[in-house]
Nucleic acid binder design. Sequence first.
DNA 1: GAACCTAACGGACACCTGTCCGCTTGAGCA
DNA 2: TGCTCAAGCGGACAGGTGTCCGTTAGGTTC
Lengths: 191, 191
Amino acid sequence: MHEKKNAPLRSDAQRNRERILEVALVELTRAADTPLSAIAKKAGVGQGTLYRNFPSREALVLEVYRYEVEQVAATAAQLLADRAPDQALREWMDRLARYSMTKAGLAAAMGKATAYGSFAACGHGPLTAAITLLLRANDEAGTIRPGLTPDDFLLAIAGLWHIDPHSDWQARVDQLLDIVMDGLRAGAPGR
Amino acid sequence: MHEKKNAPLRSDAQRNRERILEVALVELTRAADTPLSAIAKKAGVGQGTLYRNFPSREALVLEVYRYEVEQVAATAAQLLADRAPDQALREWMDRLARYSMTKAGLAAAMGKATAYGSFAACGHGPLTAAITLLLRANDEAGTIRPGLTPDDFLLAIAGLWHIDPHSDWQARVDQLLDIVMDGLRAGAPGR
DNA sequence: GAACCTAACGGACACCTGTCCGCTTGAGCA
DNA sequence: TGCTCAAGCGGACAGGTGTCCGTTAGGTTC
């Protein structure tokens, strides 16, 4: 069983993939529920090609916004440098929420992606890494209950994916994250 | 604009509705993703009839398990009579989780139903009523933070709908509900 | 630059959801 | 019992997702 070592894509495949992402960004921003078939057509590729690159709608959305998501993930380290671990965690959750609500379809995709099985398994490293970082820092500072895994964390904030991004989400997000943050804090050993 | 006051269904319509529910219970229990068209066929009705009675898959699932859900809702009062408000709330959440995990497709349907807009608006009174009851009792006892609405509560436990009912859900549910419960408790004024 | 091999293509297809609309039939009334 | 008529029926259909498979064309080797 020979592994295909991190697949050096063929040149045309590479081009197709990028053209799909370009088109998808435009179309999904315009309407989050644009048919995938329409995106394939506009990108000038067959359905098969689109689905080979992105097995599901969620995979495509996540990839489209990957840069944004990676940015958010990257701020974790930054925030930890600037403030107390628990403050950093809370601020980070706020930013994650803000991005999810702002980018059309991202919240829904996150919800699907985190459903039924670990998010980590989906190969979306950056987010998991960021969460791990934040949790460890807080764990060491004794500001959260011990033994929390990234999966626990993602379940705790799952409510985010159920908030309508077209409504007054700010207040509901604040309330939810207050509850979650306090929940994570409870049982903390203290420093 | 004359309201049709709580629609006295025509006899054949009534029979069809019941036959659909019977078949749906069997089929959905066997496989949660049975095509609705298959259920319609087995029930001996057209697609149109099925969809007129149940506008969406979730509506059907929720109706199929309505009795069970109402049972859970009804235990809220019982639990409040037996124990301290916060104990009752926690125990109730456990039972809700257990039912959701146990009945195939129920968790997914709950997730969809609570997504994007208040659950209460969907006309599913019993659950909302039960939650309101529990929250009020806790509010009065000073065991939870003040000002919590049923919507806040549903967002907080949304993680439940993301746990795979086919996996070792018990441990994950416990962990999640511990976090949520502590989150709700935080900021409680005390008695 | 020709031949080969396989990654990648792309569109037809299978399947599902939800809607629409012409037809059927239960039920009240004379 | 026969008439009437709208509530209700049911299946065809539109629209979308995801799969399959015969065909095409990059890349490599000689």
